[in-house]
Amino acid sequence: MVYKIRDKETGKVYEVTIDEETNEITVYDVKTGKPVKTVNMTIEELKEAGYEVEPV
């Protein structure tokens, strides 16, 4: 599923895909559409880390 996340401190917005089964999150560069990095976190962990998470 695709989400937009926003860093509450910097205001930067990222587009991510989240595999609900493995909790693998792939972060994409919004301008190029290319993957930047992959992390292993849940949506709740993202929120605790200071991100706003919205489904696209």
Rank of each mutant, 00 (worst) to 15 (best):
T32R: 02
Y3T: 09
Y28R: 11
E44R: 09
T17G: 04
Y51M: 04
E24N: 10
L46G: 00
G33D: 02
K47A: 10
E54C: 14
L46T: 00
E52V: 07
K31L: 15
E15S: 10
V39A: 06
Y3C: 12
E52P: 02
I43H: 02
G50Q: 03
Y14A: 01
Y14D: 00
N23V: 05
K31Q: 14
E24D: 07
T32Y: 04
D29W: 04
A49L: 13
E48R: 12
T32N: 07
Y14T: 01
T26K: 09
I25G: 02
K8Y: 06
V56L: 12
E52N: 04
N40K: 14
G50C: 05
V27A: 05
G11K: 03
V56N: 08
E24I: 14
V16R: 00
T38D: 04
E45W: 06
G50T: 03
V30C: 14
V13A: 05
V30R: 07
Y14G: 00
E20Q: 13
G11M: 03
Y3Q: 07
V56A: 10
V39L: 15
D29K: 01
K8D: 01
Y14C: 15
V39F: 15
K12H: 10
V13E: 12
E52L: 06
T32F: 04
M1G: 11
E44F: 08
K4T: 09
P55Y: 09
A49E: 07
E48N: 14
E44S: 10
P55W: 09
K4M: 14
Y3L: 09
E52S: 05
A49Y: 10
P35L: 13
E20N: 10
E48H: 12
Y51T: 02
K47F: 10
E45L: 06
I43T: 03
T17N: 05
D7C: 15
V13M: 07
T38N: 06
K34A: 10
M41I: 10
E44W: 08
I25P: 00
E21W: 09
K34S: 08
E20C: 13
Y3M: 14
K4G: 01
M1L: 13
E45D: 12
E52D: 11
K47E: 12
D19V: 06
V39K: 04
P55L: 13
E52W: 06
I5W: 04
V53N: 01
E21P: 04
T38L: 08
V2W: 15
D7Y: 05
V56H: 09
E15P: 04
D7Q: 06
K12R: 11
E45R: 07
T42Y: 02
K34N: 09
I25E: 00
I18M: 06
K47N: 06
Y51S: 01
V2D: 13
E20I: 13
E21R: 12
G50S: 03
V2C: 15
E44G: 09
P35K: 13
N40S: 11
E45C: 07
T42L: 03
E21Y: 11
E44K: 10
V53M: 07
I18A: 04
N40F: 15
T32P: 01
A49H: 12
K12S: 08
K37F: 15
K47M: 13
E48D: 11
K31R: 07
E44Q: 11
G33I: 01
E44Y: 08
N23L: 07
E54P: 03
E9W: 10
M1W: 09
V2R: 15
V36G: 04
T32W: 04
T10V: 00
K8A: 06
V36T: 07
V36A: 04
E15D: 11
V56S: 10
Y14I: 03
K8F: 05
Y3P: 02
T22Q: 08
D19H: 07
E54Y: 13
G50Y: 06
T22W: 06
K37G: 14
E44T: 09
K37Q: 08
K4E: 07
I18C: 05
E44N: 12
E24P: 01
V16T: 01
R6S: 06
M1S: 08
Y3S: 05
V13H: 05
V53W: 07
G11F: 02
G50E: 03
P35V: 15
E15R: 09
V2F: 14
G50M: 06
Y14M: 03
K34V: 09
E9A: 14
I18E: 02
D7E: 09
E48Q: 13
D29Y: 02
G33F: 04
G50N: 05
E21F: 11
A49T: 08
K31V: 15
E9G: 08
V16D: 00
V56P: 07
G11E: 02
V39M: 14
V2M: 13
E21K: 13
T38P: 02
T26P: 00
A49C: 15
T42M: 02
D19F: 07
K4Y: 14
K37T: 11
K12I: 14
